[in-house]
């Protein structure tokens, strides 16, 4: 697949822009729309149903939770209206100069296991793919595995099994096993995307990606691309 040129200029891409790149590679995303108005947001809510997540989409606010521009569990049309105005206000207060694309309205993915997928470029070996379970696993326990892109399905499976968290994905204490096959496919696609765009993408952070039970696939919930400084 050809590299995606147009969006990849500047330092950080907003979540929506980042996901556009992922979409080109058939990487499964949580259903969402970029609302430019309250009406846009409501129209999506009507189609997708509740509950929803809303977050401000801006390349200048890469860490949305810290900035307080994410709202979870939005349960009805009234909450959509309130959240829309509230989030934009918060974004302005956080960074008055931030360029704001709109408000991202997203299905709230239920169930499943949260994982992190990352891409980082190594000066000698090129793009590498990181995988680990979300929450404390990667950050506190350092339970992650790394491979140099591109990777095959076999290598994706091995890299998952390299982590201690793999046992959780395989199903413990009566939990259904997660859709590891779909996770492997996603890792492979991300590694290919990383190779195609190695001159443009310096880092990619998908956190979280939700791995649903076997047969139900995975959904990328949040995405951040940092582009190469030229």
């Amino acid at each position: 697949m050809a590299a995606v040129k147009s969006q990849l200029e500047g330092k950080c891409l907003s979540e929506y822009e980042s996901k556009k790149v992922l979409r080109e590679y058939g990487i499964p995303l949580a259903a969402e729309t970029l609302a430019k108005s309250v009406d846009d947001a409501l129209a999506f809510a009507e189609r997708a149903g509740y509950p929803l997540v809303m977050k401000v989409d801006s390349p200048d606010i890469p860490h949305k939770t810290e900035a307080g521009v994410v709202k979870l569990n939005i349960g009805d049309a009234h909450a959509v209206r309130t959240a829309y105005d509230d989030l934009l206000k918060k974004a302005k207060a956080y960074d008055p100069n931030a360029s704001i694309n709109g408000v991202l309205v997203q299905e709230m993915v239920k169930g499943g296991t949260e994982v992190i997928i990352g891409v980082k470029k190594d000066p000698q070996f090129g793009p590498t793919v990181l995988f680990g379970l979300g929450g404390i696993f990667v950050e506190v326990m350092k339970d992650f595995s790394l491979r140099i892109a591109p990777i095959s399905m076999t290598e994706a499976m091995e890299m998952i099994d390299d982590t201690k968290g793999a046992r959780i994905l395989r199903g413990v204490r009566g939990r259904k096993p997660a859709d590891i096959n779909a996770l492997c496919e996603t890792l492979v696609k991300i590694s290919l995307m990383a190779i195609d765009n190695k001159d443009r993408i310096s880092e990619l952070d998908l956190n979280p990606v939700i791995v649903l039970p076997e047969g139900e696939g995975v959904r990328v919930v949040d995405a951040l691309i940092i582009t190469e400084q030229s």
Partner: peptide, 10 residues
Amino acid sequence: DAVFDAFVKQ
């Protein structure tokens, strides 16, 4: 070193 280890594995 983590990247080199990945290479070693692959």
